[in-house]
Amino acid sequence: MGAQWKAKPKEAAANARGKLFGKLVKEIMIAARNGADPDMNPKLRLAVQQAKKASMPKDTLERAIKKGAGLSGEIIQYERTLYEGFAPHQVPLIVECLTDNVNRTVAEIRVLFRKGQLGTSGSVAWDFEHLGMIEATPNSAEVDAELAAIEAGAQDFEASEDGDSLFYTEATDLDAVCRALPEYGFTVNSAKLGYRAKNPVTLSGSALEEVEAFLEALDNHDDVQNVYVGLSV
Rank of each mutant, 00 (worst) to 15 (best):
L44T: 03
R45N: 13
R45E: 15
A47S: 07
A47K: 03
V48W: 05
V48T: 04
Q49H: 14
Q50C: 08
A54P: 05
S55A: 12
S55H: 12
M56Q: 06
P57F: 09
K58C: 08
D59S: 13
T60D: 15
E62Q: 14
R63V: 05
A64W: 06
I65A: 06
K66C: 07
K67Y: 09
G70L: 06
G70P: 13
L71Y: 08
L71V: 05
S72E: 11
S72L: 10
G73F: 02
E74L: 10
I75M: 13
I75R: 15
I76W: 11
I76S: 09
I76F: 10
Q77N: 13
Q77W: 08
Q77F: 11
E79H: 09
E79P: 09
R80S: 14
L82T: 14
E84L: 05
E84S: 06
E84I: 04
G85S: 05
P88R: 07
H89E: 01
Q90N: 13
Q90K: 14
P92Y: 08
L93S: 03
L93N: 03
V95G: 02
E96C: 04
E96H: 03
L98S: 04
N101E: 13
V102H: 10
V102Y: 13
N103E: 15
R104T: 12
T105S: 13
T105K: 05
V106M: 14
A107F: 14
A107H: 15
A107T: 14
R110M: 11
V111D: 12
F113Y: 05
F113V: 02
R114V: 07
K115C: 07
G116C: 05
Q117D: 10
S123M: 04
S123L: 03
V124N: 00
A125N: 07
W126P: 04
W126V: 07
D127M: 11
F128V: 00
F128L: 02
E129M: 11
H130F: 13
L131V: 06
L131P: 01
L131I: 06
G132L: 01
I134S: 03
T137A: 10
T137S: 08
A141P: 10
E142Y: 11
V143Q: 07
D144P: 03
A145N: 01
E146M: 10
L147W: 09
A149V: 00
A149K: 01
I150Y: 07
E151P: 00
A152G: 01
A154L: 02
D156G: 04
F157G: 02
F157A: 00
E158Y: 08
S160L: 09
S160T: 05
S165N: 06
Y168H: 06
T169S: 06
